[in-house]
Structures are given as structure tokens and as C-alpha cells.
Design a protein around this nucleic acid. Sequence first.
DNA 1: CACTCGTGGCA
DNA 2: TTGCCAAGAGT
Length: 326
Amino acid sequence: MSSVAPTPSPAPPHPDLPGLHEAVVRWYGSAARDLPWRDPRCGPWGVLVSEFMLQQTPVARVLPVWRSWLQRWPRPEDLAAEPAGEAVRAWGRLGYPRRALRLHAAATEIVARHGGQVPADHAALLALPGVGTYTAAAVAVFAFGDRRTVVDTNIRRVHARAVSGRGLPSRSLTAAEARLADELMPADDDLAVAWNQAVMELGALVCTARTPRCAACPLFGTCAWVAAGRPAPEETPRGQAWHGTDRQVRGALLAVLRAGTEPVPARHLLGPVDPADLVHLPAEGLRALERLNGLDAPPEQRHRALEGLLADGLAAEDARGVSLPG
DNA sequence: CACTCGTGGCA
DNA sequence: TTGCCAAGAGT
């Protein structure tokens, strides 16, 4: 037996995993926010709705919309029973309104294929429109208590700093990162759920992107990034263009469509609009039109933005009767 | 993999 | 004031 080559033992991801788990979960117990979708009585539908809304959107802006949404549509079948346009309108100013369309489509599919109940099965969750890697894992863990690795932007940042000693994670998720996240997971089911939730909260409240509050961090003493002298990030994230792009125009068009209670002719959206020509719109719609008129984007850009909206699934009836010219 | 898709608060 | 950033998904 002495001739057998020694099996290379994989390097441990962290010198003291139990200590790491204990420190972060304990911190969560004293510092976590009291969010309604964390209430055990919330249910899978409330969790699913929250995860859709929280995609690229801060908690503070989600809270009021989430409350009114669940009050109006307490079950998937309640949402599925209404036109997708109502979902877009109720989405308000959360941004990325395609999420509203996909949430409506997900509710429809939950009714059609899962008896109106949010599926507990991870593969079934992943198959729902608008549900990707993160959201499927989050719902499986936070709504159904699965032991599954959750990786979001907060968790990636905590891992990158506290464990890997880097200023920020890379732009896109690497295989090494995913493997590290797996290796850091507690073996115990309940502790794994708490770990996922706690690391995410730590990234959201303390280990923030721009000005981390290291003095308040439970990992300050063991953080690899602090130990390395808090080196600057290796790659800086790319900016998100807005001014002068059709993205800006798209937002203005959406504001008009949301506010309108009557069908809005497409020609009113494509060029400068005389508000006197649209007296049937409520005040909010008029203000949105004034904003649209104030944009410096050329008419061609407005055409492309409107066509982009329609291509995204804002069909005529969904968007209160918008029709293309001609 | 790089790119796009809204919106608003804050450093 | 301007740019960064936020519980991603789909292509």
C-alpha cells in the first residue's frame, strides 16, 4: 500500500469554515432587515414576486410595489386572470418592465402546468419565464428550504473580498467562483439556508460595492481583502449608457403608455406631441409626454425605441392600444 | 462571453 | 453635478 500515490487533497476554500458560518449567521441574527418576504407566512408566491422585483432593483423601491401587488394578486391565478398590460401598469417605475410581462407569463404557466401552486422543484422553477439561475435557486432556498448554493451580486462580492482577497468580483461569473460558492456552503440543510441569506444581507448592508463599512463587519478580523491592504478592483465595471440613447426614449415612451387610460396612437409617441391633442390623458400622462418632447433624441431614435418596446412583448393591447403608424 | 434592457438615489 | 450601482435574464 506504500506504492500508492498520495491523493492530492484539494486546498480548503477557507481556514475555518465553521467559524466563518458562525460569524456571519450570528451577525445576521442581530442586523437583518425585517422584510415582508422573509416572513414565514409569506409563502412561495410572495417570495417569487419579490425575487422578480429585486432583479437589479433596490429593496427600498420594491417594498411598496410588492405590497400592493400581493394585495391585488394574492395568488398566481389572480394575476393570470388579468391582461399582461395590467401587470405592466402595476409594475410602475420599478424599471425593466419586461420583468412584469415575464412574471405575468410565469403566473399563467403556474396555473396551466402546476395547478396554481409555485413549483417546489428546482428544474420546474428554472423553466418558468423570467426565472434564471439565481431566481430558481433563491426560491428553492428561501421559499422551500432547499440546500442549494445561491449566487447573486452581493454574495459574489463578499466571497471575492473576504475569501479571495479581491476588491470586486470579475464582470461575469466564473467557474472558479461557482465552485468556491459550493465549497463554502455548510453541510447542514438549515444552516445552509441561513448562510445564503446571511451572506447576501452582509453584501447588501456592510460589504457594499462602493464604500464598505468594514468597521461593522463580522469578518473584519479574518477578511482576506483587509489583510491584503484592500487592493483596488482589477477590472472596473462598464457603464450603462443612458443620455442620448434610445434607452432614454424608451423610458419616456413607457411612462406615457403606463399613464394612459386610452389607446395612444403611435404617431403621438414618435414625434413632438402637442398635449392639447391628447386631452384624454390624465395629468401624469401629459407630464410624461412633455418629458418625451424635451428629449434631444432624433425622431429616428424614437422610432427604434418604440419598435423595441413592441419587440419586447409590449403588444398593442398590453400597452393600452398603441399601434404602429401606417 | 458581451451586450441589452429602466429607474432613481446617493456619494 | 455626474456617474455608479442595484437579490439578473435572455440572446
